[in-house]
Simulated assay, not measured.
Amino acid sequence: MKRILLTMTLLLLSLTATAEGDYPFDPVGVWRIAHGDGTPILITARADGRATSDWDQGEEGTWTFEGERLHFAWSDGWHDFIYREGEGFAKVAYGPGAPLSGPPTNRTTAEKVK
């Protein structure tokens, strides 16, 4: 019985490590970023790939990883990318229609708060 319990525990731990290992950092939770004018924005990244923010009337979108960057694609056409920078995180944003390979529309810090 102890051997079965140990085997099951190890199996669950390995599955958890594999799931978390798919991303360079855990995206799920609440992130604090700032608008280009400095206004704070809270983003919630859900486990199912959906995202919401408290900007304006509230935005909806999706998140994915592109390489080492967490990409939020918003319903209003904006794109935010969060990535590791030094000991913390940074965010770059691209306005509607801006090429994602070009210079960002704005850049601020990012912090995971939950």
Rank of each mutant, 00 (worst) to 15 (best):
T109I: 01
F25L: 09
T108M: 06
V30W: 06
R84D: 05
D26R: 08
P24V: 13
G58F: 02
A34T: 05
V92A: 05
G95Q: 02
E111V: 03
E59S: 14
G77Y: 03
D22R: 11
M8D: 02
L42N: 13
R32C: 10
H79E: 10
P96M: 05
T18M: 07
I43C: 03
W74Y: 07
W55R: 12
F25Y: 10
S14V: 14
T39N: 03
G77E: 02
I43F: 04
I4C: 01
K91T: 15
L6A: 15
T16F: 14
G97E: 05
L70F: 09
W55Q: 02
F89T: 06
G67D: 06
T108L: 01
P27Y: 02
M8I: 12
F72D: 04
S101E: 12
L5V: 15
A17C: 09
L100H: 03
P27V: 13
L100I: 10
T62S: 13
A19T: 07
A90S: 15
T108N: 06
S14G: 00
P103H: 03
P104W: 03
A45L: 13
G95P: 04
K114L: 09
I82P: 08
A17R: 12
G77T: 12
G95N: 06
V28M: 12
G95M: 01
L15F: 12
T109W: 12
D80K: 00
W55D: 11
I33E: 01
S101H: 10
V30E: 14
E68Y: 01
G49S: 15
A98E: 08
S14L: 14
F25P: 12
M1H: 14
A73D: 11
V92Y: 04
I82V: 14
R32A: 13
A93Y: 01
A34F: 05
G36T: 01
L100F: 00
D37Q: 06
Y23Q: 12
R46A: 04
G77M: 06
H71P: 00
T64C: 07
K114C: 01
T7W: 15
I33K: 05
Q57W: 11
E111L: 08
S14R: 00
A110E: 07
M1K: 11
G29Q: 05
E87R: 09
G67T: 10
M1P: 11
L6P: 06
K2Y: 08
T44P: 01
P103D: 14
P104I: 06
A47D: 14
A90C: 05
R50W: 08
G36N: 00
T62Q: 08
A45E: 02
K114P: 03
R50P: 07
T7L: 15
H79W: 04
V92G: 04
D56M: 12
S53N: 05
T52V: 13
F81C: 00
W78E: 04
